[in-house]
Amino acid sequence: MTNSVKDWPLWEVFVRSRRGLSHVHVGSLHAPDAEMALRNARDVYTRRQEGVSLWVVPSAQIVASEAGQRESFFDPAADKVYRHPTFYDVPEGVEHL
């Protein structure tokens, strides 16, 4: 029996505010299918021309990194400051580098 709103999947909504910018997450909504999700997303999240393009993605399809493992997951980048240009000494007077 799928005739219940409880079975409507949760969709995450992403809006591209104008061409040249990427889609940004704005919120979520429930809808029975992708088409309704898109229409509802338009009404809920772009009433003031906030977007020129919309994505809706079933929340269940999103794979996320574990909040509890944030440190072990992201720490390997912490001690590699040489990946940033500010790490390097540039002699006085050298330009365009």
Partner: peptide
């Protein structure tokens, strides 16, 4: 309306 939307989605799925 909710029931119709659910039924439509189920039929198309």
């Amino acid at each position: 309306v909710r029931e119709a939307a659910s039924a439509y989605a189920a039929k198309h799925a």
